[in-house]
């Protein structure tokens, strides 16, 4: 039962990603061609509210439902991993039209091709795990 809240939160995420067309390959193409505000509006609105909300959480020292302070773990120090990793991710995002969340929403939506994308996404993650010590971070 303790997992049902995550199931419902995931459903909310899946529904809104699909209904706002953020899972569409076309919308990612439109974004990378700067031809609509749509995706920038989605990400921009989420980030603006996110910055504001995280600021309030920190200011008021808000706690989670278990009474623990809410802390967002900082990312590791580094530069090249974020540049190279980011660029490689961007190649895949534009090519497949899906970042990891929409991959799964699309499977539920009925597009079987995203099972191929998800499978090779897992292969890519595995490959990173194998060669990570040889890569600049």
């Amino acid at each position: 039962m303790k997992f049902i809240k995550f199931l419902i939160t995931g459903m909310l995420f899946g529904i809104v990603m699909a209904k706002s067309e953020a899972i569409s390959w076309y919308r990612i193409q439109e974004m990378f061609r700067f031809q609509s505000i749509h995706m920038y509006g989605i990400i921009g609105t989420a980030v603006m509210l996110g910055v504001l909300g995280v600021f309030i959480i920190k200011r008021l020292n808000m706690k989670d439902i278990f009474g623990n302070p809410i802390v967002i773990a900082p990312k590791e120090k580094g530069f090249w991993r974020y540049v190279f990793g980011g660029i490689i991710f961007g190649f895949g995002w534009a090519l497949s039209g899906a970042c990891p969340g929409p991959m799964f929403v699309n499977i539920g939506y009925g597009f079987g091709g995203f099972i191929i994308i998800m499978f090779f996404g897992t292969v890519g993650t595995y490959t990173y795990g194998v060669i990570k010590d040889k890569l600049p971070h």
């Binding site: 990312k75 590791e76 991993r81 974020y82 190279f84 990793g85 980011g86 660029i87 490689i88 991710f89 961007g90 190649f91 895949g92 995002w93 090519l95 497949s96 039209g97 899906a98 970042c99 990891p100 991959m103 191929i116 994308i117 998800m118 499978f119 090779f120 996404g121 897992t122 292969v123 890519g124 993650t125 595995y126 490959t127 990173y128 795990g129 990570k132 890569l135």
Partner: peptide, 13 residues
């Protein structure tokens, strides 16, 4: 496309 997304996401964290 999937491979790049999975590899790049983990590389970039």
């Amino acid at each position: 496309g999937g491979f790049f997304v999975g590899f790049g996401a983990r590389y970039a964290g």
